[in-house]
Amino acid sequence: MTEQTTSTRDVGVVIQESESNRPVVEAIEQDNPDCSVLHTPGLIRITAPGRLVITQETVEEKLGREWETHEFQMAIVSYFGNIQEWDEDEIVIAWDH
């Protein structure tokens, strides 16, 4: 039911900078080649035009262990955009319109 938007306005996510979140950030960078990353004290802000995706498979690959998407709650500090999808294999942030 979530129709794909054509909007390219930036969406983004802010993640706590820590050793355990590093693989998650790497996974996001790999899955979103257009993204840009900003470091501020303790925080990493990742933005991308239109759409940002976090996939379970890539995160598991980087972490070397199983990871359920619920666990992303432990890393996320803030976001902007709309959470369009949060199910077992991916999380998608995009604007609706």
Partner: peptide, 24 residues
């Protein structure tokens, strides 16, 4: 939270991020 992290206040940074993770 960033201010805490930058000023050596580890506990506040930790509670801040712990709380902020609910914020999403």
């Amino acid at each position: 939270m960033s201010g805490a992290s930058f000023n050596g206040d580890l506990p506040t940074m930790t509670f801040g991020f712990s709380a902020q993770s609910d914020e999403s």
